[in-house]
Amino acid sequence: MAEQVALSRTQVCGILREELFQGDAFHQSDTHIFIIMGASGDLAKKKIYPTIWWLFRDGLLPENTFIVGYARSRLTVADIRKQSEPFFKATPEEKLKLEDFFARNSYVAGQYDDAASYQRLNSHMNALHLGSQANRLFYLALPPTVYEAVTKNIHESCMSQIGWNRIIVEKPFGRDLQSSDRLSNHISSLFREDQIYRIDHYLGKEMVQNLMVLRFANRIFGPIWNRDNIACVILTFKEPFGTEGRGGYFDEFGIIRDVMQNHLLQMLCLVAMEKPASTNSDDVRDEKVKVLKCISEVQANNVVLGQYVGNPDGEGEATKGYLDDPTVPRGSTTATFAAVVLYVENERWDGVPFILRCGKALNERKAEVRLQFHDVAGDIFHQQCKRNELVIRVQPNEAVYTKMMTKKPGMFFNPEESELDLTYGNRYKNVKLPDAYERLILDVFCGSQMHFVRSDELREAWRIFTPLLHQIELEKPKPIPYIYGSRGPTEADELMKRVGFQYEGTYKWVNP
């Protein structure tokens, strides 16, 4: 592979701008107003304001973009700056750019259920340069409990009458099928589907988006991507930290609602779906819905739930269990780990287990898709061969690698495990991989909904998990304890083995 010439960040961002501006969906010269509902909250200060700053800094926003914060707290732009700027990672050389960014910011205080507050917000936006005809993007960085009041008031008082209007809704989209349907029906009564952007930030990850290209742009994968060759698929999300004093919020939802029903299920769809007619948003989402419709409700015998306990040999936070978090209700049975087996009941995947695993306070930070292939028929190497695996590593250190057998150097035919490896950090030294939120917010500006969740996708996802969630809430089974920093409950490994996964433990990928 030829040595790549190092590029400056300015040059890299210039390439990104060229890609972005050559499309006809990006209205570079139009006025846009980006409204952050819930501007005083954690999500706004840690993710949304920093993301908008990065896009502005790199010249990736339309030229005439204004940012308006809205929340109940009586704040000023200076207050917003004070709480969000520490997350910007701005350099001293960017000081003038930073001043320009905050000059485009404003803030309006108001209630979430008060019509007069929204009329005041609308008047404020109209007073901005060309504000009355601007395109408006409303980001709901809010708890779902206020979605209905907020969307109703936005629709009645704050819509642009000339430009387009788009609304970005953060997960969780309800707690179960019934609450999700209620919320979807409410929002759909106010906005068209092409105006609604239900954001799952995992769909903005580079390697998640790469799944489609790997599958449908490489001839070698087509013939082997089926039940005849693939023994099982494992989708993993692991965090090495616990709730760390923020367990009160987590306890309301648990690990299945927080990660599995959305992030992991979306990745499953991209692995299992048929080739779409095109890369058009609805063509892709149509195929994802077909996959979900082929999955039956989760069966309790295919589920393992766990909850982390303190590690007596650990240090600091590792010595504390979930129930030691003062914000967690006493005696909570909320799971911090889950392993679930699903089956896609169609011709391509009949009988292939899709194993979804996620948890907190585990032994490493990792998100990946792992396809394990069947054993080689007619073994001539005296059971020395391990199964081939194709691994798409989402985070950290984005990579695609194939675990395969090669001859060990020497005189004899002794096979050993090795890999074919594409590590993004080595291959793409001159490429700026956008943060997931950067990519998705740019998608909203461009009107691309491919990486957002459609209402029928959402409904099918909740259909699969709601009976299990209701059973857990009714019966309150005690989750299996696992030690902070471990791989999780051993019962999860036993479940995976029972459905056909072979864990060798003899080879570990190392970032080159």
Score class of each variant (00 low, 15 high):
residue 8 S to D: 10
residue 8 S to N: 14
residue 11 Q to R: 15
residue 11 Q to I: 14
residue 12 V to T: 15
residue 13 C to R: 15
residue 14 G to C: 14
residue 15 I to Y: 08
residue 16 L to Y: 15
residue 17 R to I: 09
residue 17 R to D: 15
residue 20 L to A: 15
residue 20 L to P: 14
residue 21 F to P: 15
residue 21 F to A: 11
residue 24 D to A: 09
residue 24 D to S: 12
residue 25 A to D: 13
residue 28 Q to W: 11
residue 30 D to S: 14
residue 30 D to K: 15
residue 33 I to H: 08
residue 36 I to G: 02
residue 36 I to E: 01
residue 38 G to C: 03
residue 38 G to L: 03
residue 40 S to Q: 04
residue 42 D to C: 02
residue 44 A to L: 03
residue 45 K to Q: 10
residue 46 K to N: 03
residue 46 K to Q: 02
residue 47 K to T: 02
residue 49 Y to R: 04
residue 49 Y to F: 07
residue 50 P to M: 04
residue 50 P to T: 07
residue 50 P to A: 09
residue 51 T to E: 09
residue 51 T to Q: 11
residue 51 T to R: 05
residue 51 T to S: 10
residue 52 I to E: 03
residue 54 W to Q: 11
residue 57 R to Q: 05
residue 58 D to S: 09
residue 59 G to V: 01
residue 62 P to N: 07
residue 63 E to Q: 13
residue 63 E to W: 09
residue 65 T to W: 07
residue 65 T to H: 04
residue 66 F to D: 05
residue 66 F to M: 12
residue 69 G to R: 02
residue 69 G to P: 04
residue 72 R to Y: 02
residue 73 S to C: 06
residue 73 S to T: 14
residue 75 L to F: 12
residue 76 T to W: 06
residue 77 V to L: 12
residue 78 A to S: 15
residue 79 D to C: 07
residue 81 R to A: 09
residue 83 Q to L: 13
residue 83 Q to V: 12
residue 84 S to M: 10
residue 85 E to V: 12
residue 87 F to L: 11
residue 87 F to D: 06
residue 89 K to P: 05
residue 94 E to K: 03
residue 98 L to Y: 06
residue 100 D to I: 09
residue 100 D to R: 14
residue 100 D to H: 13
residue 102 F to I: 06
residue 103 A to I: 10
residue 103 A to M: 15
residue 103 A to F: 10
residue 106 S to P: 02
residue 107 Y to P: 02
residue 107 Y to N: 03
residue 107 Y to H: 07
residue 108 V to N: 06
residue 109 A to Y: 15
residue 110 G to F: 03
residue 110 G to M: 02
residue 111 Q to M: 11
residue 111 Q to G: 10
residue 111 Q to H: 13
residue 113 D to I: 09
residue 115 A to C: 15
residue 115 A to T: 12
residue 121 L to V: 09
residue 122 N to I: 09
residue 122 N to Y: 09
residue 122 N to W: 08
residue 124 H to C: 12
residue 124 H to W: 10
residue 125 M to H: 01
residue 125 M to Y: 04
residue 126 N to I: 10
residue 126 N to L: 14
residue 128 L to D: 08
residue 131 G to E: 12
residue 132 S to V: 11
residue 132 S to C: 14
residue 134 A to G: 11
residue 134 A to C: 12
residue 136 R to K: 09
residue 136 R to W: 06
residue 139 Y to G: 03
residue 140 L to H: 07
residue 140 L to P: 04
residue 141 A to S: 08
residue 141 A to I: 03
residue 141 A to F: 00
residue 144 P to A: 07
residue 144 P to S: 06
residue 144 P to F: 02
residue 144 P to T: 00
residue 145 T to M: 07
residue 145 T to E: 00
residue 148 E to Y: 08
residue 148 E to L: 11
residue 150 V to Y: 04
residue 151 T to P: 03
residue 153 N to D: 09
residue 156 E to W: 11
residue 157 S to T: 12
residue 157 S to F: 12
residue 157 S to H: 12
residue 158 C to R: 02
residue 158 C to S: 12
residue 159 M to S: 14
residue 159 M to L: 13
residue 161 Q to Y: 15
residue 163 G to D: 07
residue 164 W to Q: 07
residue 166 R to G: 05
residue 166 R to K: 11
residue 166 R to H: 08
residue 167 I to R: 02
residue 167 I to W: 05
residue 168 I to N: 02
residue 169 V to H: 03
residue 169 V to T: 06
residue 170 E to S: 02
residue 173 F to Y: 09
residue 175 R to V: 06
residue 176 D to E: 06
residue 176 D to N: 10
residue 177 L to D: 09
residue 178 Q to C: 14
residue 179 S to N: 04
residue 180 S to V: 04
residue 181 D to A: 10
residue 181 D to Y: 06
residue 183 L to E: 01
residue 183 L to Q: 01
residue 183 L to K: 03
residue 185 N to H: 12
residue 188 S to Q: 08
residue 189 S to Y: 10
residue 190 L to M: 12
residue 191 F to Q: 03
residue 191 F to K: 03
residue 192 R to C: 10
residue 192 R to F: 09
residue 195 Q to G: 08
residue 195 Q to P: 01
residue 200 D to K: 03
residue 201 H to P: 01
residue 201 H to F: 04
residue 203 L to R: 00
residue 204 G to M: 02
residue 205 K to A: 01
residue 205 K to H: 01
residue 206 E to C: 07
residue 207 M to G: 06
residue 207 M to N: 09
residue 209 Q to C: 08
residue 210 N to A: 09
residue 211 L to C: 07
residue 213 V to L: 13
residue 214 L to T: 06
residue 214 L to P: 02
residue 219 R to C: 08
residue 220 I to V: 12
residue 221 F to A: 07
residue 221 F to E: 00
residue 222 G to W: 08
residue 222 G to Y: 09
residue 223 P to G: 07
residue 224 I to D: 06
residue 225 W to A: 01
residue 225 W to T: 03
residue 227 R to Q: 08
residue 228 D to R: 07
residue 229 N to G: 06
residue 229 N to W: 02
residue 230 I to S: 00
residue 231 A to V: 06
residue 231 A to F: 04
residue 232 C to S: 15
residue 232 C to M: 07
residue 234 I to P: 02
residue 235 L to K: 02
residue 236 T to L: 05
residue 236 T to R: 01
residue 237 F to C: 13
residue 240 P to G: 10
residue 241 F to N: 07
residue 241 F to H: 09
residue 242 G to S: 07
residue 244 E to W: 13
residue 247 G to H: 06
residue 248 G to S: 05
residue 248 G to V: 01
residue 248 G to A: 05
residue 249 Y to W: 00
residue 249 Y to H: 04
residue 250 F to C: 01
residue 251 D to N: 13
residue 251 D to F: 03
residue 252 E to G: 14
residue 253 F to E: 02
residue 255 I to T: 05
residue 255 I to D: 00
